[in-house]
Amino acid sequence: MDTLHAHLEALFDDLELVIGWETGYEPLRPTPAFLRSREDLSRLVWNPLCAPNLSVYLPGILKDAKETGKKIGVCLKGCDSRSLGALVQEGFVERERLYVVGLPCPGTVDPEALAEARKSSAPVTHVSFRDGLLAITSRDGTEEIELERVLARRCRRCRHPNPLHADVILGDPVPPRRTEPSFSDVDAVEAMSLEERRAYWEEELSRCLRCYACRNACPLCVCRDRCLAESRTPKWTTQRDGVRDKFLFHMIHALHLAGRCTECGECERVCPVGIPVALFKEKMARIALELWDYQAGTDPAATPPLQTFDPSETGI
């Protein structure tokens, strides 16, 4: 973390803004930070609790930013960097206007699992991370918890802990947990009979509040305030309560991410009612992988498969 501060310190004159993470209302909850002055840099934190994918802010910030010649600095984890790649592919982000600080990521924490693993429930005053151990300090003393025990689901299937497309990588490369794509969670749902699956999703989606947190956190949900879920003309979804419209919304979200999802898992992480909505998109990512051997965001020069037509493509 000291390297991160020192590195940005040295470069700050060339940067318009730095996007990173800072401590939120408690050290367990880092939030996105938008730092415009050198003094603020000290607020930056980087540890396995820095979950938000900051690439989600890039299209909007670049659109509004004045052309000063200065770049916008952004800290990205491995999965975040794939989202950046996909945004570059689709023309929403001009890569040359960014200074990308890549942070090899040991994995992020699932807050629920952490709460479960902690013995103390006292407010946390300090968090640090070393050698795979989280040290969590409260008035009850310091607890050490293995990161592996409290890892988020998305991180258990991570193949890209090391950032792509970065200007600089700070920290040693992390060995990926997976070398091959893993879709075991999708498999588990698909193993259900049709009736079971329907019941499963009706049960899960019945909790959906249509708060659109999943959509807002998704870096590839680029429609922003023109989202089809809230459009009156055309009117795809209604405001009626009931699982049907919720289901339709999630299907629209998933289909809009077909061949685009970078599997960062933000949609699922931010869901306030814990619906495993990333499974829909993982299914889409799997189809893209199997049909076209395509992984969104890994190659910024590639054309997304659903935007091309190749008559020699087979199996479609």
């Binding site: 689709e90 680029v222 429609c223 922003r224 037509f309």
Partner: peptide
């Protein structure tokens, strides 16, 4: 939203 997907398809 100016994404240009229509142009490419």
């Amino acid at each position: 939203i100016g994404c240009g997907k229509c142009l490419s398809v």
